[in-house]
């Protein structure tokens, strides 16, 4: 009886809340990058290239930092630069779940399943406010991009 009560109490205490806000993250060399987090040099390291892209009327919106195998793009929110895109440049790195450029369509399905949204060649997997955008051409992955909703 006590056990049941205890379980009931635990259930009431912890249970039934809204699921934690899950997002996609990218782990490289034991470092995990979270989409939507603030970009800092300390965490992301020295970049090998940097560019700012303004758009029609709004200046300096996107900042892109280039690293050896990927690019990180930030977007200002309340004066802080938040990471909203991570784009793979080559097949030297793979996603946290193990997908890399030049892998096959079947690799993608075995790692991410069939719960995608498809638009042309673009397969989008969504987790919370983050998307994993994968382009598949002729059965092979040709583009991998993590994106956070703006």
């Amino acid at each position: 009886m006590k056990k049941i009560l205890l379980i009931l109490c635990l259930f009431l205490l912890v249970g039934c809340g809204k699921a934690a806000n899950k997002v996609y993250s990218l782990t490289l060399n034991n470092k995990t990058f979270y989409l939507g987090e603030e970009y800092t040099k300390e965490k992301y390291g020295e970049s090998i290239g940097y560019s700012e892209v303004s758009s029609c009327a709004f200046e300096g919106l996107d900042k892109t930092y280039k690293y050896d195998h990927y690019e990180v793009t930030t977007y200002p929110v309340d004066g802080k630069d938040k990471v909203y895109l991570i784009y793979f440049l080559d097949d030297e790195i793979s996603t946290t779940e193990g997908l890399k450029l030049s892998d096959s369509y079947n690799d993608m399905i075995s790692k991410y399943g069939e719960k995608y949204k498809k638009e042309g060649n673009l397969y989008t997997y969504t987790l919370g406010k983050t998307n994993l955008n994968i382009i598949v051409e002729n059965g092979f992955v040709t583009s991998i991009e993590y994106a956070h909703e703006i």
Partner: peptide, 8 residues
């Protein structure tokens, strides 16, 4: 808060 534990 979303659950009782956090609320406490």
């Amino acid at each position: 808060y979303p659950d009782s534990l956090t609320s406490f």
